[in-house]
Design a binder for these strands. Structure first.
Length: 904
DNA sequence: ATCGCAACGTAC
DNA sequence: GACGTACGTTGCGATC
């Protein structure tokens, strides 16, 4: 195969596809009655090229209007071609826009047809050693396929023509194609050809003689005589025809290769065009692929607002006076770091009206930074407004501002609206809730982005280096957008019935999370360090043994190299495959361990490496230099179900199950005179399932505070609970969790190492004993299917479009989401409310107990030892009474010097 | 050097 | 293809 070594240039025959699309598809119009089928068909072709081929270089080529050399040498060229129908003409500008929005260069040149440009560009590309794909269904172009680096492809029929395929289809070589066409003529272009000679005769002639010249120089040998006669009669027409079907190849290409590189798709523009033409399925598809396309905006232009730079004391005093007259304003801080614990304030943007915003630079160092007020002075003047609830603050991710202000000694109170959180509640599955995206979706406006100002990669500069004037424009834009988004988002929250959830749960939670992040958790860095050294030693031992067993050294951490050793060199069985090769995951290695000792050493190595790399070493790096504590980030706008997530570092996945892993937990310690108190909800998801399903057995089990897994085992095996063995209980536990996740027979079989048949029987048996659960599952799916979304106890919503998919797998995925989301999401709702209630009660009781972490069903507190009893009582009360369910909610508590002890 | 993806593994 | 929700590390190939 010769193709594929070089970069490839895709030359798309635009003109021919315009016609094909127009005539191939029946009449299609948008709501306003404008014909759209050519645009639609053209778009399908483009999508196919982009998706299937992902071209390096690409150009769509169109005929230029007006005469060409062909009409000069033959007045009747295309004379019988009708003028382009009006219905098609109106679609042309849309097609050209479409091509542009797809990021594809386009070209047309006066006096040239598309074919001439394609011929020229083909030669031009070959001169630069590019492979060429001519995207066309036109046989005229096949004369260009004269070397193995050129092929023609029709994306609609997905047919590729190389030399061989041309010969197969037409019985002539590409080189002969021109003569072939000249003999045949073409009535659609009014190319005369040799009258009376059609495809068959032409092929027969060219099979015998190589070219037109050859034919005529052997004209006396041509048989039958009738053909000879026709050839002689129309000799001139034949040669003229050949000129007409040939191409101009000397068009001057005034571009460089870079001009033909594919550009990024302009998603917003494309969506707008689809919208205008009512290509609804295309918009949906676009959304599926790029979740950050909002509804289509009328205009994506930036709003013009009056940005006012506040650099004098007088202007600033004036600003404060005016600000005080308003009871709500939006605020956006510009700082030196994305990490609020390290960030220093560089400037403050404020906005309280639609058409203007203010920027107060306080610590710029770059261009135009000669006139600015001091940070200290500005913050002290703003403090009374910032710390008072009566001034409502609007922000995008106000938690960030809270922590930054706290680091600057200011209590930031009265968060009245957070655009990021609002956007999240409206659609929790959006990939991004950045302000740019929210603005595009809900205001239809574009914005300056952070990286527009600071750049990225190694050339990135700190915000303090940004030109003050530019910074003002950017920061004012942010503050203004947040301000103007508030009423829009408020309305949408109201329309979706999300106001209570927003105001009573998510908004109050912001300050609590901010407090937890700012407080951090104390970590024993010495402990982490000695653990790391210990782990390293153990890893070295395993490494040596693994190399010995493998007979060579390799990178154990590379699944690819490991697979090569295990399966190629040692010849072990391939048990499971990944997309890229044989799998080497835990399940596989555990099975292989029965056959070869290397597997258990790899397993040991893996778990040691995980502990060292992901925990011991990584956590040590994130200890804050001043506080000696780890300040995770609790993300409120990430998960599809309403849970929080934690990052930098993720403190929600600290090991607990293995003995080795627990050592990591031992490094999380209490402050002096305090202990860590861990409080976790017992079986909260199963209790929620009991509450929702009202299943007789499940409800009863929880009301009697029984061991629910034991009960399930007893029900399943039809024996008294006391006779349940640990193995039976384990299996029942797996089923209980499986139900919550919507697990099928296959999944259960995998987990329990039993047959599919057995698993199926087990599930059937479960549903037989737990009728209410079965009904709940069916009803959940049905409700979600009808409503289009599923909902939690406190009214959190998640769309489940999968339930309407024609694809069975996707639909089943939707069914699992419809089961799991209300359960997982309700648990998330409840613990969030518990956090708010507990925080309020601790404050009320004047206790100094501080909430440090949330791990989905667990809250971790730092408690002064002398208030431990009070705190325990208060916390238990608030958590267990968080919401009245039809089964009791109970918590389990533990405390100690470190997190491992607290959990015991 | 930087980015993005795959594979893997930790938690609830 | 088959069990829900996350985040982070390493390797590795592509890209700049």
């Amino acid at each position: 195969m010769i193709m594929g070594q070089n970069k490839t240039f895709y030359l798309i025959d635009g003109s021919s596809y315009i016609y094909r699309a127009f005539y191939a598809i029946g009449r299609l119009t948008n709501a306003k009655g404008m014909p759209t089928q050519a645009v639609y068909g053209f778009n399908q072709m483009i999508l196919k090229v982009l998706r299937d081929e992902d071209p390096d270089y690409v150009c769509v080529v169109f005929d230029a209007p007006g005469p060409t050399f062909r009409s000069e040498i033959f007045a009747d060229y295309k004379a019988n071609r009708q003028k382009m129908p009006e219905d098609l003409t109106v679609q042309i500008p849309y097609i050209k826009d479409l091509v542009h929005y797809h990021g594809i260069p386009q070209m047309e040149l006066e006096g040239c047809e598309a074919d001439d440009l394609i011929a020229t560009l083909t030669r031009w590309s070959r001169d630069q050693d590019l492979d060429v794909v001519i995207v066309s269904a036109d046989k005229d172009l096949m004369q260009l396929i004269q070397d193995p680096h050129i092929r023609q492809w029709d994306p609609q029929k997905d047919k590729v023509f190389r030399e061989r395929e041309v010969a197969e289809r037409y019985g002539v070589t590409p080189r002969q194609m021109k003569d072939f066409l000249a003999l045949m003529g073409d009535s659609s272009d009014n190319i005369p050809g040799v009258k009376g000679v059609g495809e068959k005769t032409a092929r027969a002639l060219l099979e015998q003689w190589d070219s037109l010249e050859e034919i005529y120089s052997h004209i006396e040998d041509v048989t039958p005589p009738s053909v000879r006669k026709k050839l002689l009669e129309h000799r001139e027409a034949a040669y003229l025809s050949r000129k007409l079907v040939g191409f101009k190849r000397d068009v001057v290409i005034e571009r460089g290769l870079a001009d033909f590189a594919r550009q990024p798709t302009s998603l917003a523009d494309l969506a707008r065009l689809y919208d205008e033409l009512d290509f609804k399925t295309l918009i949906d598809a676009l959304r599926q692929e790029h979740s950050d396309i909002g509804p289509v905006a009328e205009e994506t232009n930036k709003a013009q607002i009056d940005n006012r730079l506040v650099s004098s004391q007088q202007d600033f005093d004036d600003l404060i006076v005016r600000l005080k007259r308003h009871k709500e304003f939006s605020i956006d801080l510009e700082t030196t770091s994305q990490d609020p614990m390290l960030a220093k304030i560089v400037g403050v943007a404020l906005c309280w009206e639609d058409d203007s915003a203010y920027y107060v630079p306080v610590a710029h160092e770059g261009p135009n930074s000669d006139q600015q007020l001091s940070r200290e002075r500005v913050l002290r003047a703003l403090e009374p407004l910032l710390s008072r609830d009566s001034f409502g603050k609007i922000g995008q991710n106000a938690k960030y501002e809270w922590v930054v202000f706290k680091q600057h000694g200011i209590d930031f109170r009265g968060i009245a609206f957070d655009t990021m959180v609002a956007s999240y509640l409206l659609d929790p599955e959006k990939r991004s809730h950045r302000l740019e995206r929210i603005a595009a979706e809900h205001l239809g406006e574009g914005m300056l982005t952070y990286t527009d100002l600071t750049g990225k990669g190694k050339n990135q500069i700190g915000f303090q280096q940004v030109d003050v004037t530019q910074a003002a424009e950017y920061a004012c834009g942010d503050a203004n957008i947040a301000w103007r988004l508030m009423p829009v988002l408020k309305q949408k929250l109201a329309d979706s019935g999300l106001v209570t959830l927003y105001e009573t749960l998510e908004l109050p939670l912001i300050e609590i999370l901010a407090g937890m992040e700012h407080r951090g958790i104390l970590v024993d860095s010495n402990k982490l360090e000695s653990l790391s050294i210990e782990l390293e030693k153990s890893m070295d031992q395993q490494t040596a043994r693994i190399y010995e067993l493998a007979g060579e050294e390799f990178n154990i951490q590379s699944p690819k190299q490991l697979a090569q050793i295990l399966f190629d060199k040692l010849g072990l069985r391939v048990i499971k495959k990944t997309k890229t090769g044989p799998s080497t995951d835990v399940n596989v290695l555990e099975q292989l361990a029965l056959e070869h000792p290397i597997a258990e050493h790899v397993l040991a190595y893996r778990s040691l490496a995980k502990l060292k790399g992901t925990y011991a070493d990584a956590l040590a790096k994130l200890i804050h230099p001043q506080t000696g504590r780890i300040h995770t980030s609790f993300n409120q706008t990430v998960t599809a179900t309403g849970r929080l997530s934690s990052s930098d570092p993720n403190l929600q996945n600290i090991p607990i199950r293995s003995e080795e892993g627990k050592k990591i937990r031992e490094a999380f310690i209490a402050s002096p005179d305090c202990c860590l108190l861990s409080v976790d909800y017992s079986q909260i998801e199963l209790r929620i399932l009991a509450h929702y399903s009202q299943d007789e057995h499940l409800v009863q089990a929880f009301r009697e505070n029984a061991d629910v897994h034991r009960r399930t085992a007893a029900e399943m095996f039809g024996i008294p609970p006391l006779e349940v063995t640990p193995e039976m209980r384990r299996q029942a536990k797996t089923i209980n969790f499986g139900i919550i996740y919507g697990m099928g027979p296959f999944g259960l079989a995998q987990r329990l190492y039993i047959s599919n048949t057995m698993a199926k029987a087990a599930i059937d048996r479960y549903f037989e004993r737990y009728r209410g659960v079965k009904q709940f599952i069916d009803a959940s799916i049905e409700t979600a299917r009808k409503a289009g979304y599923t909902e939690t106890l406190l009214g959190r919503k998640r769309a489940v479009p999968e339930l309407h998919s024609r694809n069975r797998n996707v639909r089943q995925q939707g069914e699992r989401l419809a089961i799991n989301t209300p359960i997982q999401g309700t648990a998330a709702d409840l613990i969030k409310k518990a956090m708010i209630d507990v925080e309020g009660a601790l404050h009320q009781a004047r206790l100094n107990t501080a909430m440090l972490l949330q791990v989905h069903d667990e809250l971790l507190f730092e408690v002064p030892v002398k208030e431990l009893d009070d705190a325990r009582e208060l916390i238990r009360e608030r958590m267990e009474q968080v919401w009245p369910l039809s089964v009791p909610l109970t918590v389990e508590m533990g405390w100690g010097e470190n997190w491992a002890e607290a959990h015991a």
